[in-house]
């Protein structure tokens, strides 16, 4: 893996992208915008499943309106994040904070998928079951945790 990171960092395409101020700025804008769209839209669905947001609308209506934007945000963040990672691949690979961030983001995505799969079921029950609220709460905590983990990468490990 370390060898792959070394190769990636020295790849002429990655070097060219990293040395362009404009492309680096565009990637950063895409990464932040994608992350905000991802976390914000997921948080609203989680809050709806917890019974704390958009209570006049059915959970399935809120989810079907917002989940496409969650996945769009995720694609934007992953696409731009890959190029941001590639420019300093070795440093990121060796940084424990970055690995923690990736684990938390992956867990948050898994919980996002779980929430999206239980929402149609919630449409058929009269009141929101406690277990669904717990799953949504864990998803929300993981997404907030992923923001904190992202902020800790440059703060504690000095990378990015």
């Amino acid at each position: 893996m370390l060898q792959f990171c070394e190769w990636l960092e020295k790849n002429p395409w990655i070097v060219a992208i990293d040395s362009s101020v404009v492309i680096s700025l565009i990637l950063e804008i895409l990464h932040y915008s994608g992350f905000f769209l991802l976390v914000g839209s997921t948080a609203i669905v989680d809050l709806r499943v917890m019974g704390l947001a958009a209570r006049r609308r059915a959970p399935v209506d809120v989810a079907k309106q917002l989940f496409p934007w969650m996945w769009t945000g995720l694609c934007m963040a992953v696409f731009s994040g890959f190029f941001m990672f590639a420019a300093d691949a070795v440093d990121f690979y060796l940084a424990s904070c970055f690995r923690t961030k990736i684990v938390i983001v992956l867990l948050a995505v898994v919980f996002g998928v779980i929430v999206s799969s239980i929402v149609p079921y919630l449409d058929r029950v009269s009141s929101l079951p406690l277990w669904s609220k717990i799953v949504a709460f864990v998803s929300l905590v993981l997404w907030i945790g992923s923001i904190l983990a992202s902020l800790e990468v440059p703060a504690r490990c000095g990378v990015g």
């Binding site: 905000f36 914000g40 948080a43 907030i144 923001i147 800790e152």
Partner: peptide, 25 residues
């Protein structure tokens, strides 16, 4: 400092993450 940043970024996520779906709609 990271916790204050977390507050700002969490708020921004909710703000942008609810503004954009409305604009796109």
């Amino acid at each position: 400092y990271p916790f204050v940043q977390l507050t700002h970024f969490t708020g921004l996520s909710l703000w942008i993450g609810t503004n954009l779906p409305l604009d796109l709609r």
